[in-house]
């Protein structure tokens, strides 16, 4: 083919190329390993020597011209606003993601706070002996204080623990102070099930025992927890109460996190929410685990996990925690 026609043809194709891949195929057609211009250049060597120089210049000029056109066209189409090939409005394809149950989330967050204070996580049993659930915790047989811890009994004359305080006994039976433990777990009470009661729920138990802890330490630790867990503006009040296994005993209220203490339905217009029970470990408990009298002091506290999760997430019905409806569980991912 005549070299001029070849150039014209190439330039024509280049100018019509509307996309980089088309342009690339044009380049290969002329300048590729077997491209027409490449072949032309290669054939020069076989020409008689007198024609070589001229033909060579011509062919090189052709190549430069085509290359320049290619470059120019490339930059033109590359900078053109091109029409997208994908519908970017389609939803993203997400990796699968599950979630922890809100109960576990509360336990983990509480754990994180107490860990900073040197508390370690321990576990106890769920089927327990009368000794660990009652006697060792200074709850005598046939005493009205047992009513608060109504209990499921098993055929084998054991029981389902009605509070995580049993873990205090389990730990103290096997270890010597200093102790700083947090024990989360399931507890069971034969309550009639309704929006705020379940026969199974979770508690977090805490225990610190050493030779010098004080009631003021108990206040310090609990307030630190409340502020770190619920926010720095949370206020608390310590109300005297009665638990057989602590003395002095206290019930801790925190300012209502929903109304900020102004009074609402959740806090029954009092501005306060009952959040945990606590107290200094009763000497009778130390005695029951065989600690020498007067040597150790400590404090314990316990709180309901579902109650905290309900307050946190605005859940009105405790039964939702055990239905395992994905429409519920998915909301906590």
């Amino acid at each position: 083919m005549d070299i001029t026609n070849l150039i014209d043809e190439a330039l024509e194709k280049i100018s019509r190329a509307s996309a980089p891949d088309i342009l690339e195929s044009v380049r290969i057609e002329y300048l590729g390993r077997n491209g027409q211009i490449t072949k032309l250049l290669r054939s020069i060597g076989s020409l008689p020597s007198d024609q070589r120089s001229e033909a060579g210049q011509e062919a090189n000029a052709a190549r430069e011209k085509v290359e320049a056109a290619l470059t120019e066209q490339f930059s033109r189409i590359a900078h053109q606003p091109k029409k997208s090939k994908i519908d970017t409005t389609l939803p993203g394809i997400r990796p699968l993601r599950g979630a922890f149950h809100p109960v576990r989330q509360v336990i983990q967050d509480a754990r994180a706070v107490f860990r900073r204070l040197g508390f370690e996580f321990v576990e106890g049993r769920e089927v327990e002996t009368e000794f660990h659930n009652f006697t060792a915790l200074n709850i005598p047989l046939d005493h009205p204080s047992r009513d608060a811890f109504d209990t499921f009994y098993t055929k084998g004359k054991n029981l389902l623990r009605s509070q995580t305080s049993t873990v205090q006994i389990r730990v103290m039976e096997t270890r010597k102070p200093p102790l700083r433990i947090i024990a989360p777990g399931r507890v069971y009470r034969p309550d009639t099930v309704d929006a705020s009661h379940s026969f199974m729920f979770h508690q977090i138990e805490g225990l610190l025992v050493d030779d010098r802890s004080t009631f003021s330490d108990l206040k310090g630790v609990i307030n630190l927890f409340l502020r770190q867990f619920f926010g720095k503006n949370v206020k608390s009040r310590f109300r005297p109460h009665f638990f057989p296994f602590t003395e002095p005993s206290v019930e801790v209220d925190m300012s209502c996190i929903l109304c900020g203490g102004k009074g609402c339905m959740t806090c029954k217009r009092t501005g306060w929410l009952e959040i945990m029970g606590a107290g200094m470990v009763d000497p009778a408990v130390f005695q029951s685990v065989g600690y020498p009298s007067g040597k150790y002091r400590g404090f314990a506290f316990g709180m309901g996990v579902e109650r905290i999760a309900m307050l946190r997430h605005g859940i009105q019905d405790i039964r939702l925690f055990y239905e395992n409806d994905l429409n519920f569980l998915r909301q906590f991912s």
Partner: peptide, 29 residues
């Protein structure tokens, strides 16, 4: 009696402190 005294004196008058006792050595379960 300690409880009685503290109760009437007022739990709100008891200060907040952080435990200063030894830390336990055992690791988690």
């Amino acid at each position: 009696l300690v409880e009685e005294a503290a109760r009437i004196y007022g739990y709100d008058r008891i200060p907040e402190t952080i435990p200063t006792g030894l830390l336990p050595g055992a690791s988690e379960v």
